[in-house]
Design a binder for these strands. Structure first.
Lengths: 234, 234
DNA sequence: GTCGATATTTTGTCTAGACATTATCGGCTG
DNA sequence: CAGCCGATAATGTCTAGACAAAATATCGAC
């Protein structure tokens, strides 16, 4: 926190963010910074390396270190467990299972829409509704690979959201998210909104050690949920 | 890339991701790893510190290092410049200005909706349309603080997207994003879709050195754009 | 002047220690 | 048994070097 390297780092970061060192400018060499701060090179190196990892500067051997030119806005969005979202709002949370089926994946018509994401021959298909403060909050359609999560076959998801359960049982996943806007369509009835109401749709494909584990499609009424991303590159 | 510390790091990471070391498990101490890999402690320390920064492990003095229990899914989404999105698709890009006005911010009715985001007394208000391959792609409404970006007053935005211009002139910002689903509403005409068509709305508030710079609201037809986030924590 | 080999500068990685910090453990005391 | 308190074990930071790798700069030959 107040270690020397972090002080050096925020010192340099301040000069960049304030514009004192504009994009493209060359910053002092490690050697010069060592002389300036009166410390070992490793200490300066650690500070500069962290700035480079954060994308604020670019380093080139022999040439030096330069303030980077921003090109993309990256934002970190957190997609927490839905139960956690609702708990944070101070509302009561409930999960209701609508349908559950165990099937051979080839029997699932949608298998083809999951291009390149083959969950194995044995798949659990679950439909459920997340309810916040008595109002429908999110309609969820989920497929779970029983090869990757065999315990799921013996678990009762009638009141437990499969997302929370999976997070606790098949953790440390790799995932891909897709966020789109669409109309509620057939899901409008369960969500108690019109078929033409706009919804935020989050799709997530999840792997564990490169083995597909689960796919989920979540539909949020547009007026009940939004994603907020604070972006403080550091 | 193939330095010793990165090899140690991916070695440990593999044991975590494969489940060999489940969440909550204690991983070997730095001392033990030094003995195992036959290197200096700094080298092991660098590898472990990187894993801790990535959130894969938690470290507690005296107690040791433990595989973290995942609780939130964080995803890094990149929100690139719209021109870059379209260029990446290999389509032609065009920006069309619809309206431009310089105003006292109190004269803008919406000022109140930007709670806590006061752009200063002198504001530039711009409406424009991003066009990809001849079709409307994004409707944009933007406010620029002339206190933060005085050069904007003398710039011609009739064909230059203000977003690209700002990125090059007032870089290294801090930002907040909000992503919602809504209907096109009045914007439906400019986008050549129905008023009830679902849209992805991205709002972004931008600061530079804690000074508000710009606010933008972008409306994407739901079927023409989606956000994709690859999540490979590392 | 142009090309190419060599020197130099700058960053990247690593070592073998030192001391600081802090939470836990175990024992001592009341 | 409860509570305090010091020993200890683990991480956190830092040093003063060393060598490696890479890219630029320089100088010489032609």
């Amino acid at each position: 926190m107040s270690s020397l390297d972090s002080r050096i780092r925020s010192d340099l970061e301040g000069k960049i963010r304030s514009g004192e060192w504009p994009p493209g400018a060359r910053i002092p060499t490690e050697h010069e910074l060592v002389a300036h701060y009166g410390c070992a090179r490793m200490t300066v190196h650690k500070a500069i390396t962290a700035l480079a990892a954060a994308g604020l500067i670019e380093r080139r051997k022999k040439a030096g270190s330069f303030v980077a030119r921003p090109h993309v806005q990256t934002a970190v969005i957190e997609i927490p467990d839905i139960a956690a979202i609702i708990a944070a709002r101070g509302e009561t949370y409930l999960f209701v299972q609508l349908q559950s089926a165990r099937a051979r994946s080839t029997a699932l018509g949608e298998a083809s829409s999951l291009a390149g994401f083959y969950l194995g021959p044995d798949v659990l298909a679950l439909d459920g509704l997340h309810v916040a403060a008595g109002r429908p909050f999110c309609l969820e359609h989920r497929l779970i690979s029983l090869a990757a999560a065999p315990e799921a076959a013996d678990t009762d998801f009638s009141a437990t959201a499969p997302g929370s359960w999976l997070l606790g049982h098949i953790p440390w996943t790799q995932a891909r998210h897709r966020i789109t806007a669409c109309v509620a369509g057939a899901g409008g009835e369960a969500l108690q909104i019109g078929r033409n109401a706009p919804c935020l749709q989050v799709e997530r494909w999840t792997w564990r050690a490169s083995q597909p584990v689960t796919f989920v499609r979540q539909l949020f009424p547009g007026d009940r949920y939004d994603l907020v991303a604070e972006f403080t590159p550091d």
